[in-house]
Amino acid sequence: MLIRTEAPSDILTIDRLLKSVFESEAEANLVMSLRENSKLTLSLVACTDDGEVVGHVLFTPVTVDGEDYAWQGLAPLAVSKGYQGQGIASALLSEAFETLPELGYPACVVLGDPNFYGKFGFQSAAMHGLECQWEVPEGAFQARSLTEEPLKALYRAGKGQVEYCSEFNEL
Rank of each mutant, 00 (worst) to 15 (best):
E6K: 10
V31W: 01
A26M: 08
R35H: 13
D15R: 00
D10A: 06
P8H: 06
V21R: 08
I11D: 11
S9R: 04
L18V: 07
A26E: 12
N37I: 01
D10L: 04
E36G: 00
N37K: 05
I14N: 00
L18C: 12
A26D: 10
T5C: 13
L17A: 01
D15K: 02
R35L: 10
M32I: 11
T5P: 00
T5E: 14
K39V: 05
S33R: 06
V21C: 11
R35W: 05
A7S: 12
P8C: 07
V21T: 12
P8G: 08
R4Q: 04
E6D: 10
E25S: 15
V31N: 00
I11P: 01
E25V: 08
V21H: 07
S38H: 12
F22P: 01
L30C: 08
S9T: 11
L30W: 04
A7D: 10
S24W: 07
P8T: 09
S20E: 15
L12G: 04
S20W: 09
K39Q: 14
V31Q: 00
E23Q: 14
K39N: 08
T5K: 11
N37V: 02
S24H: 13
D15S: 15
S38L: 08
A28D: 07
S9G: 08
D15Q: 09
V31E: 00
N37H: 13
I14F: 02
K39D: 12
T5Y: 08
E6V: 12
T13G: 05
F22C: 01
T13Q: 03
V21Y: 11
V31P: 02
D10H: 06
S38W: 00
R4E: 10
D10Y: 06
L30D: 03
A28F: 07
R35E: 01
L34A: 07
E6L: 12
A26Q: 12
S20I: 04
S33N: 03
K19D: 09
S24V: 10
L12S: 13
E27G: 00
P8V: 09
E27Q: 06
R16F: 05
L12E: 12
N29S: 14
E36A: 13
K39Y: 03
A7T: 14
K39S: 15
L34T: 06
E6N: 10
T13M: 03
R16G: 04
A7M: 13
S33Y: 00
R4T: 05
P8N: 05
M32P: 00
V21P: 04
D15P: 03
A26R: 07
A28S: 13
A7N: 11
T13S: 08
V21G: 06
L12A: 12
A26Y: 04
K39P: 02
S24M: 09
V31A: 02
N29P: 08
D15M: 03
I11S: 14
R16L: 13
A28I: 03
L30Q: 03
V21D: 06
R4M: 03
F22E: 00
L34Y: 02
S20K: 10
I11M: 10
R16N: 14
L12Q: 13
V21K: 02
S33Q: 03
V21F: 07
T13P: 01
E23T: 15
A26N: 09
R16W: 11
V31D: 02
L30N: 03
S33H: 04
D15L: 04
I11Q: 14
F22I: 06
K19N: 08
R16K: 14
K39M: 07
E36S: 11
S20F: 12
